[in-house]
Amino acid sequence: MEQFLDVSLFNSTLRMVTPILLAALGGAICSRVGLFNVGLEGLVLFGAFFAIVGNYITGNVWLAVAFAVLCVMLFSLIFAYLSIHLRANVIIVGISLNFLALGLTSFSLRAIFNVKGAYYDKNMQGLPAIDIPLIKDIPWLGDVLSGHSPLVYLAFLLIFVFQYFLFRTVSGFRLLAVGENPVAARSLGIKSKRIQYGAVLMCGVLCGLAGAQLSLGQVTMFTENMTAGRGFIALVATMLGQSNPLGVGASSLLFGFMDAVSIRLQGLSLPTHFTMMLPYVVTLVMMLFFKDKSYMQEARKANESSR
């Protein structure tokens, strides 16, 4: 047991949690403006893919991250246009975006790299691990907290940035207003569409970073459908955290830990099927404790008499 709960488990938790956390923060921003973004999965997948492409083209890992972010913003713009401008059903748009991500990345994988399933280049540089000066010398804590890719630190920093932004700034306040009562916000002359677009684009940035961490932070490779449901788990983290950055951070940590545990357990003699099942089962169990909005509330909102 002692060996099981060792330093590297917690260390890898932080690594595993990063993509989920970043995507979940993105989902939280979207849901704060009233858009339930089921497309997180697809956006993260795009991020992972374009990070590799960017790396391949530029040879510079930072430019690669920037490229990924830019590309994902472009795709999140599609989501925004369809759901905000054309008023399409957000859930359906999200699902379609996931299809698009899967199709387009596997097509481009063939088209650009001429490989099927996975692309790996051992010369490709991943995100560097950075040690935090003082903390790295603290015995146990240093090994857990230090030596991660910069995106890991950024993700945790962003929890607090978003917490401050939403609840302390004027722009954040208006964003919350748009989500709470868009009609009232519009009647005050607040440009609610612009704010919604901004939120979705922000979500795109975050998903781009999440994808970059996935493909450049841990393994430096891209495999078809490499998100494997992490986007959906991020969606659950958003829900469990009530779209509150601190809450989202906490629930993401839990799922990241489960991810790390599941990988750790593979070393034991259990069949891998069950260890791989763990994060999904835990997610289900967690959902049991946090009730969704009742269908009545949702239907009421959808059928409001002020048309």
Binding site: E180, N181, A184, S187, L188
Partner: peptide, 10 residues
């Protein structure tokens, strides 16, 4: 407005 334009949680 006839139907108040308020944000209930604010």
């Amino acid at each position: 407005h006839q139907h108040f334009m308020l944000f209930p949680s604010f």
